[in-house]
């Protein structure tokens, strides 16, 4: 079984440092991007199997990227992560088809469950 490609999009550098390392430890191939625009422009857009996406970012926000992917008919499972305690956002993105919405800080288990769920139901 080839290792699944997971992309992380977050403007926070510490997240881009720590989260990919953990995911790699969990056995995934990880690419990190600092913005939605950067991800959309990357060569990995087509083979990303699960997207871990921050909600609030400068420029295009997480939910906006979700809309954009949908518009481009890219059915990539998305796991949202957010430091904001705002359940409305979570409800909104889940209704728009997100796999999960994790509130920072989240546990390793919660992260793994969400990613695995996304990979099972593309």
């Amino acid at each position: 079984m080839t290792r699944s490609l997971v992309a992380v999009v977050d403007d926070d550098e510490s997240v881009r440092e720590s989260l990919p390392d953990l995911l790699r430890e969990l056995g995934f191939v990880v690419h990190a991007f600092s913005s939605a625009e950067e991800f959309l422009a990357s060569e990995f857009l087509d083979n990303t199997e699960c997207l871990i996406l921050d909600v609030a970012m400068p420029g295009m926000s997480g939910p906006a990227l979700q809309q954009e992917l949908r518009r481009r008919r890219r059915r990539i499972p998305i796991v949202f992560i957010t430091a904001h305690v705002d359940e409305n956002i979570c409800t909104q993105v889940l209704e728009a088809g997100a796999v999960a919405c994790l509130l920072k800080p989240f546990t390793e288990t919660a992260l793994l469950d969400a990613v695995m769920k996304g990979l099972r139901n593309p």
């Binding site: 926070d12 510490s14 997240v15 440092e17 720590s18 989260l19 390392d21 953990l22 430890e25 969990l26 992560i81 430091a83 904001h84 305690v85 705002d86 509130l103 920072k104 800080p105 989240f106 546990t107 390793e108």
Partner: peptide, 23 residues
């Protein structure tokens, strides 16, 4: 909310890093 966001961000990093560290 603003305090939570400011604090949750590093907390999230701490937990993720600690998990990675253990692994």
């Amino acid at each position: 909310a603003s305090i939570a966001h400011e604090v949750n961000q590093p907390l999230s990093g701490i937990i993720t890093n600690a998990s990675t560290c253990l692994r």
